[in-house]
């Protein structure tokens, strides 16, 4: 894969996005375009604004300034469920399963409410996603009995049930063993191969390097580097930000 030149028109255009909480500016004038089909890595130290940024993309937070345009439509003020219906899905840093439901039912929520015009009956659809994710055996299991890696996969599967154009993975590998990291990473890469644009937030650098076509590094709410993975890693400011001032 060619690292820098991901083809296609922008799927997501973020322009001068600014979000502050009281006196604290979490995002400061962020502008970036993400192309259709791109695998985009988002890195930065803790508290640098990564999660705030994806909250503004998914609609969990509304920015004070700037805009988010998805597929040519301004969605800056749209509530999260309407964004989900337009094809934006996400996983959460700390998994948030629907605890009283089985794994299959978790997926049915997305299929019921967000996925439009699928050819297969919902249940078959859900099963095919679970099979893809290697969770088919757990379909009937209550979601509060899953292991950490299964939960991570279920979160991604539930996001897939939304039939997303854009999938945002928020540290889906945190707390997993290295073989499990590879497992989840392979899943994400294979999803990227079928025309789903993916934004991946991750702390595990090897994963970011292997996954991303482009990487953006945030620090204190600003973009300090954006480009091919090895360029970003070589960037002095990025190294400083990670090593601490």
């Amino acid at each position: 894969m060619t690292p820098t030149a991901a083809p296609g028109a922008p799927l997501l255009q973020i322009t001068t996005l600014t979000k502050s909480f009281g006196g604290f500016t979490a995002l400061d004038n962020i502008s970036v375009d993400i192309r259709k089909g791109e695998r985009f890595g988002l890195i930065g130290p803790n508290g640098s604004g990564k999660t705030t940024l994806i909250n503004c993309i998914s609609g969990a937070l509304l920015p004070q300034i700037g805009s988010v345009v998805f597929c040519g439509e301004d969605i800056t003020q749209l509530p999260p469920h309407l964004r989900a219906r337009r094809g934006i899905a996400r996983s959460f840093q700390i998994p948030r399963p629907f605890k009283s439901m089985t794994v299959l039912e978790n997926l049915m929520v997305g299929l019921d409410f967000a996925a439009v015009g699928s050819a297969l009956p919902e249940e078959d659809m859900a099963m095919s996603i679970l099979t893809r994710m290697g969770l088919a055996a757990k379909a009937g299991a209550p979601s509060d009995t899953l292991s950490q890696v299964e939960l991570r996969k279920m979160e991604l599967a539930r996001a897939m049930a939304v039939r997303p154009k854009l999938l945002i993975s928020d540290e889906a590998m945190a707390g997993l063993s290295s073989s499990e990291v590879d497992e989840v990473l392979d899943l994400l890469i294979s999803l990227g191969e079928e025309d789903i644009t993916i934004i991946m937030i991750e702390h595990i650098m090897q994963a970011v390097m292997r996954f991303s076509e482009r990487v953006m590094c945030l620090d204190a709410g600003r973009i300090i580097a954006l480009g091919a993975p090895d360029e970003v890693m070589a960037n002095k400011r990025v190294q400083e930000a990670y090593l601490g001032t």
Binding site: H81, A84, R96, K99, F113, V162
Partner: peptide, 10 residues
């Protein structure tokens, strides 16, 4: 079960 997760699932 989870209001934010529900919103983000449509």
């Amino acid at each position: 079960d989870d209001e934010l997760a529900a919103e983000c699932t449509g």
